[in-house]
Design a protein around this nucleic acid. Structure first.
Lengths: 184, 184
DNA sequence: ATGAAATATGCAACTATTTGCATATACTGT
DNA sequence: ACAGTATATGCAAATAGTTGCATATTTCAT
């Protein structure tokens, strides 16, 4: 159900097309929720049938037609009701750690390559996060209240990525040693 | 598919019943992969049909009968093949951050309560992790190699929980201020 | 010129996961 | 005595998510 409420939160910020919501899931909200365009279009249809959102057809020259969705008062109420429910504990599905756990049955070199690749992604993500922090969240306590809340979701991301990078500095030397030992 | 390989890794360590594997998913492997007993029993059946595992019936007095599963050579090969595939990037589904992102539309007091509750869980988890580290992973470079790999999955967990707790120290004062302001 | 990426939406099939139920015995705590 | 927890496995229904495909135009890069 959480996808539904992620979409409602996005539409509560501003009216948008399915295509635009999909892009939002690749950016800000994407850090804590991911969804494909197929999922989003299908969910928007269901939500429209339930009266949580409504849309207007917009015809465009030189581009495909689109549907601009906006949240209804019923949608806002449903979102408010959901926001005060207890949060479900986050499930973690981390196949890198699974492969590491399997240890010597796999290849230390392969694990090392993967850790280095993901490290690079995390380094870039951290730079992006810091750039966003600089650009949008300076003097945070003077920003509008909604921004202040969003700022703390960014801070969560920064903490997470930094801790992952700190861990990688521990595991990389170990994997280098194992990968080296295997070829000798 | 990853559930399948999580089970194979577990059975490669030692033969086990579905019930015992379920308990493992609540402990060590549970940090990076979760699965219900329904999922595990169903998957074991499929894996048995495919010849990746085999089982023997064990009749017990005073307890229900059980099936002891063990990995086959075919299962070991399938696992080895999977271990050298690229890892899929982890998906994060964090409804706490989603509710935080929604900000003033929800209740700061409710968010604060939830953060404090999860913080308590994380404090306890960190204690558990540290206890495991002390008991099983002292003088890590003198331990058997498979233990050394597992140690780094534990280290990942420790880093993660510590970073979450550090973040909570940032967000709690903010939410306390917001919750206080709302009642005045 | 030709291919790739962006814009824009959607169906169908499959895989993964959750939720609810069902069964049966024994042990432990109140 | 009675309720709850542990042991042990499983089916069925529903929801959630992935993968592959389909369509149609424009703009940008090689």
């Amino acid at each position: 159900m959480a996808l539904r409420y992620a979409i409602l939160i996005s539409l509560h910020e501003e009216a948008a097309t399915g295509y635009e919501i999909t892009k939002k899931f690749d950016q800000g909200m994407g850090f804590f929720w991911q969804a494909s365009h197929q999922q989003i279009y299908l969910e928007l249809k269901k939500m429209s049938d339930l009266g949580l959102v409504e849309f207007q057809h917009i015809e465009q020259d030189s581009k495909p037609d689109k549907k601009l969705y906006q949240i209804t008062s019923q949608g806002i109420q449903a979102l408010k009701d959901w926001l005060i429910q207890p949060v479900k504990t986050q499930t973690i599905k981390d196949s890198l750690l699974m492969k590491l756990y399997a240890g010597p049955l796999g290849s230390a070199q392969h694990l090392l390559d993967e850790v280095l690749r993901i490290k690079q992604e995390h380094v870039e993500l951290l730079e992006t996060f810091h750039a966003i922090e600089q650009e949008w969240f300076q003097n945070i306590d003077q920003q509008p209240l909604p921004y202040q809340y969003i700022y703390y979701t960014l801070r969560n991301g920064i903490h997470y990525v930094q801790s992952w990078l700190a861990w990688s500095e521990e595991v990389i030397p170990f994997l280098e040693k194992q990968a080296g030992a295997a070829t000798r």
